[in-house]
């Protein structure tokens, strides 16, 4: 049998989850026949996963190795292990090759018409800088943190089309 998927997302205040993520869960259940649950980091009282002794994949739906990936995800992994789940930690989404290929396809489909640039959440650790450099090399388009994007006076001359590197609106 397939692993149960426990998706981990950022969420907004009070543990609320954006409708596009809820629709993702619904489609995984309906179209792919998967057993899925979803948890927001902003939920103070997450429900316990109740799936018997089935194996679980903890899938962090984060795009960059910021503090959520480096600190919060391991904490939640430990909590689920302590609750007795037979659980494996999946790589964070942004480091998973099929996801990067999907983003690359999106960029390629736009490139004949526009010059895309990826606009991301500012992150500052060494790990994050190394990751961003390799991402920029892989996608072969400029990456800007949104604070830098807002300061960059040349962007209009360069005529970039900004692609927000966010799963849901922020």
């Amino acid at each position: 049998p397939h692993y149960h998927l426990h998706l981990l997302v950022h969420g907004s205040r009070g543990g609320e989850i954006h409708p596009s993520l809820l629709s993702l869960v619904d489609q995984l259940k309906r179209l792919k026949n998967r057993s899925v649950s979803i948890e927001a980091l902003t939920d103070d009282n997450p429900e316990q996963i109740d799936i018997g002794n089935r194996s679980v994949f903890l899938v962090p739906l984060f795009l960059l190795p910021g503090s959520h990936v480096c600190i919060d995800v391991p904490k939640i992994f430990n909590r689920l292990q302590e609750e007795g789940q037979n659980i494996k930690l999946f790589p964070f989404l942004g480091s998973f090759k099929p996801w990067l290929s999907l983003i690359d396809d999106l960029i390629t489909s736009q490139r004949p018409f526009v010059k895309p640039a990826l606009i991301h959440h500012p992150i500052s650790s060494d790990t994050a800088s190394v990751f961003l450099k390799s991402l920029e090399k892989f996608l072969n388009i400029p990456l800007y943190s949104w604070s830098r994007w807002n300061q960059d006076t040349f962007k209009k001359e360069k005529n970039y089309l900004p692609i927000p590197y966010l799963l849901t609106p922020n």
Binding site: L7, K32, P164, T168
Partner: peptide, 22 residues
């Protein structure tokens, strides 16, 4: 500007990626 999951090919692509996990 749309966030990624509001773009149809990304949404469908992610359903496929996660749906195909073991």
């Amino acid at each position: 500007l749309k966030s990624l999951l509001e773009i149809d090919i990304i949404h469908r692509g992610l359903v496929n990626i996660l749906g195909n996990l073991p």
